[in-house]
């Protein structure tokens, strides 16, 4: 309990001191080291050995004691340097929906070999990797994203007890990478017709298209050559352009006004569901949130644009 509390404070304290970055190279200043319980056991053993050696006036026991001390000292350097010099760079993961796990890719490189480096979030299991000089090693940090919006990568802990397990060296990595989190899609129970959109199937609103000839209009610069009504020119009616339209049902413009009596977050979740559903049906749809509007369109790009707006919408 106390340990957790201390950990929390410690983390906050370091966090204030470290700038966020996408690429972090561990220096001696940002790396910490402390004995593990086996380290303390070794200390106790060394103490008993030194006591015994003094009492028995036995120099070979002294030599053993000092060898163990020396190995311990070298272990401090080795454990420490097993971490120092590592370069971590984090990348933005693919967007996820709230409640899903985002996988933040982190690539690790170094000029040297490093063995048994554990990387992971606090209170989660670590991924252990070995780093070979100048070769890149990748790990993915899985982080649960609870709320829509941008989710920063939590402080990442990297640690090592190699070579002997007597000491643990660790460092906190504060990355400036975030994951876009779409609202969690929820199927709306009732949908009220919004004022601007009718769900009537046969509303004959023509939208520009390529299928049906609609009429002629005066030429405007930029009109495609193939659409120019050359015959009309021959009839000296001036330059005219043929207009084509597609007749289709009125496109849906999703908006929060469809869900007047629900909470904003629920509304956004419902809209998310509708957007995804509309995309899967291959329909054309638009989105209107407050003052922002996305004109009706279709396609993957369009859907992500809508989802993004939903993710970042501030009531």
């Amino acid at each position: 309990m106390i340990k957790k509390l201390l950990d929390e404070r410690w983390l906050r304290w370091i966090r204030r001191r470290r700038p966020l970055a996408q690429e972090i190279t561990l220096s001696q200043r940002s790396t910490y080291i402390f004995p593990t319980r086996y380290g303390f056991l070794l200390l106790a053993i060394v103490f008993v050995m030194a006591l015994g050696a003094t009492n028995y006036q036995n120099n070979m026991v002294f030599i053993s004691t000092f060898m163990v001390i020396a190995i311990g000292v070298i272990a401090i350097l080795m454990t420490f340097h097993n971490l120092v010099g590592l370069t971590f760079s984090a990348h933005s993961p693919e967007a996820v929906f709230a409640g899903q796990v985002a996988h933040f890719p982190i690539s690790i490189t170094s000029q040297r070999h490093h063995q048994s480096i554990g990387v992971g979030l606090r209170n989660a299991s670590l991924s252990f990797v070995d780093i070979v000089a100048a070769a890149e090693q990748r790990v993915e940090i899985a982080q649960l994203c609870k709320a829509r919006g941008y989710q920063m990568l939590d402080p990442v802990r990297c640690q090592t007890i190699f070579p002997f397990g007597f000491l643990q060296a660790w460092a906190w990595l504060f990355f400036d990478v975030k994951c876009l989190v779409y609202p969690k899609p929820l199927k709306p129970e009732t949908i009220e017709q919004s004022a601007g959109s009718s769900s009537g199937k046969e509303s004959d609103t023509p939208v520009p298209g390529v299928e049906d000839f609609y009429g002629l209009r005066p030429y405007q610069p930029g009109d495609v050559m193939s659409r120019i009504y050359w015959k009309g020119m021959a009839k000296e009616k001036g330059l005219q352009t043929k207009e084509f339209v597609e007749y289709q049902s009125d496109p849906d413009i999703f908006s929060l006004s469809q869900f007047p009596s629900v909470d904003l977050e629920f509304g956004l979740s419902y809209l998310t569901y509708l957007v995804i559903e509309a995309h899967q049906d291959g329909r054309v749809f638009g989105l209107q949130l407050g003052e922002q509007t996305i004109a009706p369109q279709r396609g993957e790009e369009h859907m992500h644009q809508c989802l993004r707006m939903l993710a970042l919408y501030k009531g």
Binding site: T65, F66, A70, I71
Partner: peptide, 16 residues
């Protein structure tokens, strides 16, 4: 590691 340890050990042996 052992090789590095020996001088450290000798230091302790003499000065402890």
């Amino acid at each position: 590691i052992l090789l590095y340890s020996i001088p450290v050990m000798m230091f302790f042996f003499v000065f402890f």
